[in-house]
Computed example of a mutant assay.
Amino acid sequence: MNRTRPVPKAAAWRWLPVLLLTTPMVALAHTGAVPPVGFGHGLLHPLTGLDHLLAALGVGLWATLQPGAPGRRLPVVFLSALLLGLPLGAAWPTPVAEIGVLGSVLLLGVALALLLRLPVIPNLVLVALFGLVHGHVHGTELLPGAGLSYVAGLLTGTALLTGAGYLTGRLLHRWQRIGALRYAGMALLLLGLLS
């Protein structure tokens, strides 16, 4: 009988930076090459834009640092604000929102690297602002023919990423590896600066 040895958790975490840095991710989110139409495009959009991917994962991870119910609400606040930002971006496009997207990724990176825990109201306001600027940027890309199916796909993709971040953070808490969130924050900072 051939038995394989389990990989220790600590050894697996040492490979996380290598995995993140070697994963091929091309930021295709804002090229304008393909008009966003349909559920599939909406679903894949947050996965193909590095800045949106990092922000959604970062919000989920950061939510696990916040205590109790307010922490669990942060992903919902992010998604709700993203939805509110869509019509704002469609009605009032501005390139300044892209700076807000980068700023949100960098701030989330710093918050994670410092294991920052904020009071409830500043937390909710910050995450709502992050969601609003991300929604605004997505809204500037919306075409009249994109429809509700694209928006549903976009929200689903973002929710899956935010949920993955939240689940990962909860697992880190369970395994008593909260310090790994610092590395995730540093990775967000590095990748945010490269995107």
Rank of each mutant, 00 (worst) to 15 (best):
A56T: 01
A11K: 08
L108D: 06
L160C: 04
P36E: 01
P24Q: 06
A152G: 04
H134W: 10
P67N: 00
V110A: 15
A97W: 10
W92N: 09
R3F: 13
G185M: 13
A146R: 01
L106S: 02
V133C: 10
A12Q: 12
L20V: 15
A56D: 04
L74T: 08
L21R: 13
G103F: 04
R170N: 11
G49I: 08
L86K: 05
A63M: 07
I121V: 15
L44G: 11
L84K: 09
L54S: 06
G135T: 03
G89D: 02
H138S: 01
P6I: 10
T48N: 11
P24D: 07
R174Q: 13
G163I: 01
R182E: 14
E141P: 00
L148M: 12
A10D: 14
G42T: 05
N123F: 07
A113I: 07
L88A: 15
H52P: 07
P122N: 04
L21W: 14
L54E: 07
L194K: 09
P95G: 13
A152L: 14
R117M: 00
A187H: 04
W15N: 00
A69H: 08
N123M: 12
D51P: 05
G38D: 06
L155Q: 10
L161F: 05
A69E: 01
R182D: 01
A152V: 07
V133L: 09
R73E: 08
L20S: 13
P24W: 09
G89H: 03
A128Y: 08
A128D: 06
R3G: 07
A33T: 10
R72K: 11
P24K: 09
V76T: 13
L143T: 12
L181C: 08
G103Q: 02
V34S: 04
L143V: 15
V137P: 02
A128R: 06
